[in-house]
Design a protein around this nucleic acid. Sequence first.
DNA 1: CTGAAAGCGCTTACAG
DNA 2: CTGAAAGCGCTTACAG
Lengths: 361, 361
Amino acid sequence: MAITRTGPNMNVIAAALGVSAATVSNALSGKGRVSPELIERIRAKAAEIGYVPSLAARALRTGRTGVLGLVLPDIANPLFPQIAQAIENAASAAGYGVLIADSRGDVAMQTEAINRLIERGVDGMVVVPRRGTRIADVGCPVAVIDTPSTPGNTVAADHWDGGAQMGRHLAALGHRRVVLIGTSSSSNVQNDRIGGLKAGLGPEAECETLWIEKVEAVGGKGCSLGLAENARAGFTAFAAVSDLSALRALTELQRAGIRVPEMVSVTGFDDLVWSPVVTPALTTMRMDMAMIADLAIAALIRVIEPEGEAEEAAAGKVASETDRVPMQLVVRQSTGAPHSGGALNLHAPTSNKPTAGELKS
Amino acid sequence: MAITRTGPNMNVIAAALGVSAATVSNALSGKGRVSPELIERIRAKAAEIGYVPSLAARALRTGRTGVLGLVLPDIANPLFPQIAQAIENAASAAGYGVLIADSRGDVAMQTEAINRLIERGVDGMVVVPRRGTRIADVGCPVAVIDTPSTPGNTVAADHWDGGAQMGRHLAALGHRRVVLIGTSSSSNVQNDRIGGLKAGLGPEAECETLWIEKVEAVGGKGCSLGLAENARAGFTAFAAVSDLSALRALTELQRAGIRVPEMVSVTGFDDLVWSPVVTPALTTMRMDMAMIADLAIAALIRVIEPEGEAEEAAAGKVASETDRVPMQLVVRQSTGAPHSGGALNLHAPTSNKPTAGELKS
DNA sequence: CTGAAAGCGCTTACAG
DNA sequence: CTGAAAGCGCTTACAG
């Protein structure tokens, strides 16, 4: 039985022009030594008949599929869109497709997902590992995006420095007593951000770290974080280590009648889609996902595509040292000087507009 | 030059056992007529040497890649994680991989993305079309997820009915004057939701529809929506057609000192991750993404995998009639009876806890 | 500059 | 129940 292909193959071009398939291949790939006029004629014919190369055949022949895998700890993570978009972009710019795999937050499924990708013959993969996971040797190039403090990492935002920038921003506004809010104390990323925050706030600042998972272990999921009490006790800023937590803090405070930023400041991390949309808009730290993705893909390609050097040596290892991509402070309305506007000043948050100079780094 | 494969191929199994490659293939695929004992020995040997079939070779031979494409209007869309996760799940349960493609909100890029997927030889694709786009015949099976009122749609949540459910919920609480909030008046999905909302609220309700894009065209991006004025004018509920808009409404109202739900109610759509996390938690409508994904994938597979019937007739068309998947009302703290708690009742929102009976379908 | 030939790893009629 | 053979569409040394 003849397998029906959707389009014509190389042979019809070759036949139509009275040349060999090898020449067509060489002409189309550009690397062959074919006369310019012939290349032109072949190109034209290919375009004319709507030739589309068979990636499957090429893959079988070359051993490379032109597909990269993206494995994520949990697709439901709100940060996922940014990552996926950046990776998809960088990959397709480099001529690669992206196959997604979801770990659903489970370590066993992460391994399974990685295996599925390997069976599908990906040329390499970028993995955002689940907390605490070490990616074993999988026999194909892997780029890990986590945090520079994770061993085996390839590229990541400099979370610690991001925390430090935010800490300095708050310190400069005059905040000395701040509540640091994270969700999980076992997260490297979150710990790095909190470490940076403390450093940026300086030794004279009084910091209290609140892990939501611990509060909820006692109070139940979705319970009050007791932030209003903190505010009344004199804390003037709430620095969350993710926008999600910042949003929770912001709405909890607002609901308790505490005005942001007039009475207390709130900051987040990651600049999720809705961060500029809430009132007051959230001051946050943004990762340069495009750059992170570019570096990850570049690292992968460096080992996938042989350049004449000894690429075998690096197989499975994609970079020896982690690239740290700086984060960018985005100052919006949710931060101001402590008690700047007063509790009753309802309609004049004008003093908190970000100035051009504040949007730095 | 010999192409180095990572693992052993069929021939090494065949050689080790003194049988032919054809028999190995038949044994492993299960469809062949091979003796049970031989099948067992072949299976065992395959496992022993860690045989992994070459999908590229299989694809070349059968003309099917076992990969589906997922094309989205914009990966940055906050709903994307839900969709991607559901599709990835349904697809991998059916033995398919998922290749992602991002349109970045652009019609031209949507076409380009679709073409890239076709070049990669996907067996079919599910597309969430950009507003107003009709997916042309692409020569491969396509399942469209949009809204039942979109021509050519395959499967979708019943957005209109979702709106109606929400409208009835608000009407039952006693709301008669409600502001309907959407972002874009050219969105089929949003218009369906708004239509349902109006129907559910009933003819005696006074509705005012506010399109954010129009307000921003005048006031600038991120400007005030003037919701506090609406509240003071006597509107008691704000029904947004997405959680993102609901969040904007909620925080704008809170910031203006208007208490939710004591003074006004706010509702959203889609049940995004942060919806249960804000204070007060958002009442919203949830789509059954798992079911939508299952139906989309099933429709695709029905035409991809021939079952002996005339499948040619359906090529390119995946379903004749749209499957409507019901939405589910999720009642949380952001809705209550109009002015139930009074403006000054700060710490007793207990009357607004959802009861079991309210969480209906 | 161009072509003939081999082969990537699989599956599928077909013959035995 | 099992095997020999052909072929999916491409690329790559190699020879001319």
